[in-house]
Design a binder for these strands. Structure first.
Length: 410
RNA sequence: GCGAACGUAGCUCAGUUGGUUAGAGCGCGGCCUUGUGGUGGCCGAUGUCGGGGGUUCGAAUCCCCUCGUUCGCCCCA
């Protein structure tokens, strides 16, 4: 019986797990530098947590969620994104008393989409959220943080920061109405997908890749003309600060984001090196969302990054695991060998033996696996209660006993 | 969810008018060399030819279904 992994789900091992772990460790390091605390939430939640905040008409809610009934008829969903569970968690645990409250987390998300490169049904995200501040410093800080993480992991790749402002929640409401009217008047020139969105989600028409749509969008009312003076001033200042931080920005008036809860600043870090799933990190401000989920009326800003997409751009991680290889020449010497094996482990060294009794093979494997030393245990070592230690880097070999074994091993 | 291409050994891939027992390189195992690696030589095993069904005397090859991967659309991380 041969059973395959579920479509769009993958096992992680070898080079891939090295990349994965490197990302996680860099993320944790930068998070602590910026004083963000780790928060891990359950992998499933009540379905209602996602429906309203993400938008009843959004594709994620409409057709991509893994939802099922529990035995007591509770409707449960495997989390398709991390922002709403994070907010639920900070409300549930009363973590919004000291503001701003800064949290990050990593973990699996689930969306039932057609898999392709950079898009999987189970995938891993990095999430950073800053709750409780409307200060533009919070926007800048969280974008800067994303940029630093990407620069550390992918120093040589061409990644662009796309940025836009959607305006306040009220502005956005007005603009959507005007946009719906405009698109209704130009219905005949739009693609079928876009026509479906005219009333439910007209913003999404703005970032359509369809050629005819793009022509219509060119003539559409521009979002920036609807921003209030305050909004505009804020947006200009954010851009200025990002430029001062030497983060090149690309102003993208068609950048709107797919989830309903965004307003004001929205941004994406994009690359042209991995095909059509090109957003590495996406996020923005979500004032009003915390209130929607039953908390206080607090603002928030955050982003999500796709670990698998970042991995696609990474070079192999050089694994410099220093270790000591064992070469045991006969089953009889196992007891003697175990003394050194155990001694080294207890002194915090890494050891490995392949359970075979062939010296040539052992040396060959030790060489391949980049061992620093080989401890050789044969007849004479067994009789004389000592160990031969070979330095693989320079070829030197010395005989030591347990008490002075560490003299030759660094 | 829509359109297209692809699926042969652990990996990268050959394999045409359908014809014995399905191949190469790398890797793997053994030996040359029963105490010395990174670079030699010889030998060997790779396998439900993604899975199921059909056509045929005969299918890796043709047809249908199915699963998976990739690319584009859609969507997004």
């Amino acid at each position: 019986m041969k059973i395959n992994p579920i479509r769009g789900a993958h096992d992680l091992f070898g080079e891939e797990i090295n990349k994965f772990n490197k990302i996680i460790s860099e993320v944790k390091l930068v998070a602590s530098q910026f004083s963000f605390n780790e928060l891990i939430t359950p992998i499933f939640e009540y379905s209602e947590l996602f429906k309203k905040p993400l938008g009843e008409q959004s594709d994620v809610v409409l057709k991509e969620m893994y939802t099922f009934k529990d035995r007591n008829d509770d409707e449960i969903t495997l989390r398709p994104e991390y922002t709403t569970p994070m907010i639920r968690a900070v409300i549930s645990n009363g973590l919004l008393n000291n503001l701003p409250a800064k949290f990050f987390g990593t973990g699996q998300m689930f969306r039932r989409e057609r898999p392709q490169k950079g898009r999987y049904r189970q995938f891993n995200q990095i999430n950073f959220e800053n709750f409780g501040s409307n200060d533009l410093f919070a926007d800048i800080e969280i974008i800067n943080l994303a940029n630093i993480i990407l620069k550390k992991i992918l120093p040589n790749n061409n990644i662009k920061l796309h940025i836009n402002s959607l305006g306040s929640r009220e502005n956005l409401k007005d603009y959507k109405k005007i946009l719906s009217n405009f698109f209704n008047e130009n219905k005949n020139s739009l693609s079928r997908e876009s026509i479906d969105k005219i009333n439910s989600n007209p913003l999404r028409i703005l970032d359509s890749k369809n050629k005819e749509d793009i022509e219509v969008v060119k003539k559409s009312p521009k979002l920036i003309e609807f921003l209030s003076k305050d909004n505009l001033k804020n947006y200009e200042e954010i851009k200025k600060c990002l430029i001062n931080l030497e983060i090149p920005i690309y102003e993208d008036s068609t950048l709107v984001r797919g989830l309903d809860y965004y307003c004001n600043t929205v941004f994406e870090f994009k690359t042209d090196e991995i095909g059509s799933q090109d957003t590495l990190i996406g996020g923005g401000r979500y004032n009003g969302l915390i209130k929607t989920l039953g908390g206080k009326d607090l603002p928030g800003v955050g982003w999500a990054g796709g670990i698998e997409r970042i991995m696609l751009l990474m070079d192999n991680v050089v694994n410099l695991n220093q270790y000591i290889h064992f070469a045991i020449l006969d089953p009889e010497y196992k007891t003697h060998a175990l003394k050194a094996y155990d001694f080294l482990i207890k002194n915090n060294y890494s050891v490995y033996w392949n359970y075979k009794f062939n010296l040539k093979k052992s040396l060959s494997i030790a060489n391949e696996k980049n061992a620093n030393y080989v401890v050789i245990i044969g007849e004479s070592e067994n009789i004389n209660d000592n160990f031969s230690v070979k330095n693989l880097k320079n070829g030197n070999q010395e005989i030591k006993n347990l008490s002075n074994l560490l003299d030759v091993i660094k």
